[in-house]
């Protein structure tokens, strides 16, 4: 059963709706004890990474989250939180994956936010099992995680090559919104629930 970290960073209605459509059971994580009751943990998040980090701090859950050894999936800002630092609010983050979250530069001749469907190039990773190569996912973000060959399990191009998904041990992150990415996104959520 999936536990969703409930720290008040954005709306989770769409995420829970997607899990319900897929008949995946879920509950909310409010306390450290809750973390132990679920087999998989999702860290959602929209909005400002620095502000989201502050909210997460207030839950007091950070040491327990960092110590988890069950599958954890950060979505969008939730993915950025597992990195080391964000340029958004110059904020130190969870530092689970040693990567930096940076701001898209309009000098690259791109519009910001990066909003819409973008092709994703994924490596052979169980999170992407059954997902077609270059399948498109729905992105909405102004900050991105730098591409890194070690932790990257999927990349996308928007002005530059950036990380669409990362993994370090049991910690996964996706920059796109699987709950809004049609069938491909639903496959990601299903795959995550099957990770052991």
């Amino acid at each position: 059963m999936i536990g969703i970290v409930n720290y008040g960073a954005g709306n989770i209605f769409s995420l829970t709706a997607a899990l319900e459509r897929l008949a995946l059971n879920y509950g909310m994580v409010n306390t450290e004890a809750d973390l132990a009751t679920y087999s998989h943990i999702i860290i959602p998040g929209v909005g400002h990474a620095g502000a989201a980090m502050e909210k997460l701090k207030h839950t007091g859950l950070i040491p327990a989250i960092k110590a988890l050894n069950k599958p954890v999936l950060g979505i969008c800002v939730g993915m950025q939180l597992i990195t080391e630092h964000s340029e958004e609010g110059d904020a130190p983050l969870l530092d689970i994956v040693p990567l930096k979250t940076r701001k898209f530069d309009k000098l690259l001749n791109i519009k910001i936010p990066h909003m819409g469907w973008n092709a994703v190039n994924h490596k052979n990773n169980s999170l992407f099992e059954g997902v077609e190569e270059n399948a498109q996912f729905y992105f909405v973000h102004s900050y991105f995680i730098e591409y890194n060959p070690t932790f990257d399990i999927a990349s996308a191009n928007y002005g530059l090559k950036f990380s669409a998904a990362v993994q370090k041990d049991n910690f996964y992150g996706v920059q796109f919104h699987p709950e809004k990415s049609g069938k491909a996104g639903e496959q990601i959520l299903k795959n995550f629930s099957n990770l052991s």
Partner: peptide, 11 residues
């Protein structure tokens, strides 16, 4: 909006 969000897998 709630009903749509429950059913729809696009934004």
């Amino acid at each position: 909006v709630k009903s749509v969000a429950r059913q729809l897998n696009i934004p």
